[in-house]
Amino acid sequence: MRIIRFLSDPYSPVLAAVTDDRRIYPLPYTDFLELVRTAERRGETPLMLLRQVLSSLEPLNRSYEELALLVPIEAPEVWACGVTYERSRDARNAESGGGEGGMTCYDKVYEAERPEIFFKSTAARTVGPHQPVYLRSDSSWQVPEPELGLVLDRNGRILGYTAGNDMSSRDIEGENPLYLPQAKIWRHSCSIGPSIRLAETVEDPYRFEISCRIYRGGRKVFEESATTGRMKRKMEELVSFLIRDNPIFDGTVLLTGTCIVPPDNFTLREGDRIEIEISGIGTLINYVKAPVPQY
């Protein structure tokens, strides 16, 4: 069972459930968190509540592809993890010129008890399906980072899973690790969606298949796939460090790191189409736009 948000008209967001046979049921809740809280008040799980609600509803007479999808949740904060996969560690070493003789900071964090966790985005900076992600004006080496996102409540409980794009300026981070906030945070540098997969419907979150495809001028210029089973750290471990002495909000999203990195000679360009697909969640599609002029 997946949860989506879409526009029924230019001003009316609708929360809906998508069943495994792709039938879409508009729900009587304003957002995903209201669904979760309603289930809690009734002593039920979200899936139990949905099964009851859907039994009295008619599916929408529209296909999934026809909907104007929104971010499935307006996350008050998005956090992200780095170097949780070996591929990510190797990429960080390559962009910084390290990795030859001696331990780099990326080698150390890969082996350390404490993971790398950083602030990524706010609701105002985060976009959803088919919305543009922007390039950064002072970077010449930028890539998408396809990641599994955990939708959390304030106690760190995993409510669901979504797909995320943790856009990254590899040259800025490679110049100096202290530049990480600038390499990660700028206008529309984060996207999530297209849906939230209810956590209780996922038997094993380490069996998600993640794929990334990039098209340029209608031609596919990059494609790679991997699985969350290659993650070095457990998801609960990452959450435990996020909430350690750090209050979070209901609806916070934690991106769990990337295992897919385009070649070192690749950088995004305006007009590129990025597709990030995660099994059981869907395909998050965004187009790349040039930086917005600053006045």
Results as ranks from 00 to 15, higher is better:
L15V: 09
D9L: 05
P177H: 05
M235V: 11
R23V: 05
R233C: 12
R42N: 12
P144R: 01
G149N: 04
A16Q: 11
E65C: 07
E100F: 05
V36K: 05
V71A: 11
T45S: 15
K120F: 00
I24E: 06
C190K: 02
P144V: 05
G257R: 10
F266D: 02
A16I: 11
A112E: 15
Y106T: 14
P293Q: 11
V253W: 00
E237F: 09
R22G: 04
T122P: 09
C105Y: 07
G160T: 09
K184A: 03
L70W: 11
L69P: 09
R207Y: 07
P10E: 10
I73Q: 03
C190W: 01
E100G: 05
E111M: 13
V261F: 01
R273Q: 03
L150A: 06
G251Q: 08
G97Q: 04
N176K: 08
S8R: 13
R230I: 09
Y215C: 06
L50I: 05
P115D: 04
P263D: 04
F249D: 14
S121F: 04
V151N: 10
A163P: 08
P194T: 09
D250N: 13
R92F: 14
I192L: 15
P59Y: 00
T122H: 15
G98W: 00
P72F: 03
D21K: 13
T283R: 02
G97V: 08
L50S: 12
A39R: 08
R51L: 12
Q182Y: 10
S168D: 05
C190H: 06
Y287E: 15
N61E: 04
V109D: 00
L148N: 05
E173I: 07
D250E: 08
I24G: 12
L152I: 10
P247S: 01
E34D: 13
Y179E: 11
P115F: 02
I276W: 00
D245K: 14
P263N: 08
C212A: 00
Y106V: 11
P59A: 10
E275S: 08
I158W: 00
T104S: 15
I210D: 06
V239F: 00
V14T: 15
K232M: 04
I210H: 08
R170F: 00
I192P: 08
Q182A: 14
Q131K: 11
V71Q: 12
K108W: 14
V288D: 00
P194A: 03
L242T: 09
Y11M: 10
R157Q: 09
Y206E: 02
E58C: 06
E270T: 13
R62W: 06
S225D: 12
V109K: 02
R5H: 04
Y25I: 07
E113Y: 11
P146M: 05
G82P: 01
K232G: 02
F208C: 09
G218A: 10
S88K: 04
A123F: 06
S195P: 10
L35S: 10
L180K: 13
V18R: 02
E58R: 15
V202Q: 06
R170W: 00
S279V: 10
R125P: 03
D204C: 12
L178H: 08
D21W: 08
I260E: 01
D272Q: 06
L49I: 10
Y179S: 07
K220L: 15
D153G: 07
E44S: 14
R269K: 12
G128D: 08
E58Q: 14
E34W: 04
